[in-house]
Amino acid sequence: MTTITTSAFYERSSRALGDLRKQAESLQGSIGTGQRLLRGSDDPVGAAQLRALSREDRFSEISAAAGARVSSDLALTDSALSDFAAYVTRVKELAVQAASDTLTTSQRAGIGVEMKEIYGELIRLANSRDSAGHALFGGEATGEAYTLDAAGLPVYAGTAQAGELALGEGQTVLRGVTGPEFLNFNGPAGATNLFTLVRDLGLAMQGGSADPAQSARDALGALDSGLESITTAQTVIGGRMNWIDLVSERRTQRSEQRTEQQADIGGADLATTVTALQEIMTVLEASQAAFTRLAGLSLFAMLR
C-alpha cells in the first residue's frame, strides 16, 4: 500500500498546476507575439535559424542605408552635371554669337563678362558637396575638390577615384565621378579642360585676342567635346543609379523571403494555438477544482 503524505500531496499538486500555468502563459505569449518560439530552449535548432535570419536582416538594413546614401550622392552628381551641361551650352551660344564678324568690340566685351561669370560658377559647381559634406567631385577628399593657384586657375586637389560603397551581397558601386574624369578632355587642338577653355575664351572676348571672332569659332569644337564629356559622365552616373535600384529590388525580395522563412520557423498558427490554450485552460480549471476537493477531505470528514 502506497502512502502519500500531506506535504507530498501539496508539493506534487502545486508542481502539476504550475506546469499547466506555464504552458498556458507560453501559449498566451505566442498568441500575443505571433511567435511560436519565445525561448531558445523551445526549439534550439529553429532558434539558431531565426538568429541567423535576424543577422541577415540587420546586415540588409546597413546595406540599404549605404544604398540610400550613394543614391543621394549620385542624384546630386547628376544634378550638378546637368548644371555643367547647361553652362557649357550657354557658353557655346555666346561663342556662336561672338563668331559673327558683325559684332562690335563692346558687344564681344559684354559676352566676355558673362563668360567670366560662368567661369566662376563652374569653379563653384566643381566644389559642390555630397550628402556627408565632402567634395562631390573630389573623390575621397574631405576638403575642396579644386583650389586656386597663384594665377587664379583651379587645380585639382582630390583623389584619383571616387569612394566605393558596399551595397551588400558582395556588390559595390562608386559613389560618383572625380572632376578630372569629365572636366579634362581632348578637343580638336588636343588635351584641355573646361576651366581653361571658358577662361581663355572669355579673355579673348575682352581684348585678349587679335581676332576674337576666330577665337570664338576655334572654341566651338572644344566646347562640343566638353559637352560630350559631361554627357558621358551623366550616362555613367545613370547606369550606376540603375544598378543600385536593381540591387535594392533584389534586397527587398530577399527580405520578403526571410520574412516567410521566419514565419515558417518561428511563427505561431493562431487557430492551433488558441485551441491548445483552451484545452490547457480546461485541464487547469479541472485540476484546480479536483485539488480543492481533495485538499478539503480529512479522516473526520469521512467519518461523519
Rank of each mutant, 00 (worst) to 15 (best):
L223E: 02
E164P: 07
P154Q: 06
A8E: 13
S13F: 05
G170V: 06
G179M: 10
L277C: 06
F185G: 13
T104S: 15
L197V: 07
A222T: 12
T172K: 08
T178R: 05
G207C: 07
L183M: 15
L153S: 15
V88D: 10
A150C: 13
S14P: 00
S248I: 04
R108E: 00
L220Y: 05
I280F: 00
L153P: 06
L246H: 14
R69I: 10
D101R: 03
L203T: 13
D42K: 01
A47D: 09
Q35L: 04
L38Y: 00
G163A: 14
Q161C: 14
L17N: 12
A150Q: 10
Q107E: 10
P44H: 02
I111G: 00
A68K: 11
L17R: 00
S106F: 08
Q214D: 03
A290I: 07
Q23D: 04
G110C: 01
T104W: 09
D73C: 12
G238C: 11
H134Q: 15
N242S: 10
A162E: 03
A216H: 00
A271V: 05
D83F: 12
I230P: 01
A219G: 01
A301F: 14
T272H: 06
E285S: 11
A85N: 15
F291S: 12
A109M: 03
A85E: 14
F59A: 14
E56P: 14
G187H: 09
A301T: 07
T196M: 12
N184Y: 15
T77I: 09
A213D: 08
Q288G: 04
A276M: 06
S13C: 02
V274K: 09
G179Y: 03
R250T: 04
L246N: 12
S7C: 07
I265M: 05
Q97E: 12
T252M: 08
F59I: 06
A219K: 04
G176Y: 03
P154I: 06
S54R: 10
M281L: 15
L50C: 08
A157K: 02
E285R: 01
L167F: 04
T292D: 12
T33V: 05
L122K: 00
E260R: 13
R51S: 04
L284H: 09
F195A: 14
F185W: 04
V113K: 08
G266V: 00
A204V: 05
Q206H: 06
R36S: 08
T147M: 10
L201C: 03
